[in-house]
Amino acid sequence: MIGYLARRLGYYAVLLVVAVFLAYALASAALGPRTYFEAKQPRPSAAAVDRQLTALNINDRTPVTTRFGVWAEDLVLHGDLGRTIHDTSVNEEFGRRIWVSLRLLLVGSLLGMALGVAGGAWSAVKQYRLPDRALTILSFVLLSMPVFLVALFLKNGAIAAKDATGREVIPFVGYETPGLAGGVGAHLADWGLHLLLPTLALALGGLATYSRYQRSTMLDVLGSDYLRTAEAKGLTRNRALLKHGLRTAVIPMSTMFAYNFLALFTGAAFTETIFAWHGMGEWFIQAINEQDVNAVVAVNLFAAVTVLAAGFLADALHAALDPRVRY
């Protein structure tokens, strides 16, 4: 199993290097930091712009491979992601924002998966009865809404609640109340409350996807020979379902987790922007509008690493769940 995971990890490392280079090249080609500086008032001289660009290692007159070489060397040797277009440290900004995003991604993905797997299994067992039909309708509606729309609906609901009651029932701006007094408990409660809506926006989508998928794998398992064997040796239907059926039916969810994480990442970027979280997603959108190559590449790196980490987690989960792949 260790060998298998090590090989996967090696493959991911190769993918990561190639992907990051391509992202760097793409961002360098598509964005125009030169125009950003030239648009400044008063307009700086061409030489000054050039100097500035070279200093930031984003001068489009330097070959892109050379720029990437400098960038990669700094990253590998010093862990330095370069300077932003405002000549501040990308690392600092990265460090500030990464925990904001990870909090959302982690809680959102795990919650969505847990709810989805439980709901899907329940739905399958109660096939065509009320709980199944209700959950089916709910997940269909959820699947038909882009995450940003779910987020907007939730936010509008919170605004309506605020307007109706005259006070902020559930916070919908930012990830903490600025300048909140009180102890650790109060801070944690404040964090949790701020997490509620954004996490829900992400988790609802996960709930819908996972539950549909889990329902169908569970239905496949319902007709399987080994479930019949489990019953034949004296387990009741429900215990056989839980112990033998569900255990096998969750295996494909690990693959699902990897794919779903992609969608989740996108959704998180939008959700951050809508709820005014200063996370990686918001930074990305801002960086593109400011032609900030290094910041854009940094966010891409973050995305690639989290997606691959999710993929690796899925592999590990699969190997842990299914003895047949541990060869």
Binding site: L15, L16, A19, A23, L26, L262, A263, F265, T266, A269, F284, V299, N300, A303, A304, V307, L308
Partner: peptide, 8 residues
């Protein structure tokens, strides 16, 4: 598949 397509 490494990058969410939205980024690109």
């Amino acid at each position: 598949l490494i990058f969410p397509s939205f980024l690109i």
